[in-house]
């Protein structure tokens, strides 16, 4: 979820760490009136949105500032540990990139639903609570989101069919 919001691996990892710290420090505030996962995800979402706001402010500031200040962390350190990876993982990584790109291109209301429902695998009720919308709205948006993703991804995912026996069996 954080990667989809922030679109930068280093920033997303930092936000995930910050979320874990906030969850730990605020555990005493968790009242149990929602699922722990829902509570944690709302903290993560707030953390991500807060960073997005800061980024937007920084971009405004930088219009007047020295452009050199913008040369930030373009090469995340974590990528170095990904040099040696098995072919299968490489394929998964490529697949993940295709999926992420498609999800990121969704309008926000659909993206949020997909992130919570299909990636975090929250149920309809939890998703509705996390986004503060009705369960009927979750179902409608989820349907549209999946339809948009299917249209975007089906032609691209064909290439992954041979090694994923069973998944695409009926289409090839």
């Amino acid at each position: 979820m954080l990667f989809s919001l922030l679109r930068n691996e280093t920033e997303a990892e930092d936000a995930a760490q910050e979320t874990a710290i906030k969850v730990y420090l605020n555990l005493h505030l968790f009242r149990g009136d929602s699922q722990f996962r829902t509570w944690t995800l709302s903290i993560a979402r707030n953390e991500g949105l807060g960073r997005l706001r800061k980024q937007a402010t920084r971009r405004e500031d930088s219009l007047e500032a020295d452009t050199d200040e913008q040369t930030g962390d373009y090469t995340p350190a974590i990528l170095t540990s990904w040099r040696e990876i098995p072919a299968e993982a490489l394929e998964r990584k490529e697949l993940g990139a295709i999926l992420r790109k498609a999800i990121e291109s969704l309008p926000e209301i659909y993206r949020n639903i997909v992130l919570l429902r299909d990636i975090e695998e929250m149920d309809i009720k939890e998703t509705a609570a996390a986004l503060d919308i009705s369960e009927a709205a979750v179902k409608v948006r989820l349907h549209r989101a999946r339809a948009l993703l299917q249209r975007e991804l089906a032609p691209q995912l064909k290439g992954f069919a041979p090694k994923r026996k069973g998944l695409f069996g009926r289409r090839v």
Binding site: R146, A147, L153, A154, L167
Partner: peptide, 9 residues
């Protein structure tokens, strides 16, 4: 194909 997308995600 829709199910595949859901499974992969």
């Amino acid at each position: 194909s829709t199910r595949n997308v859901v499974v992969l995600m």
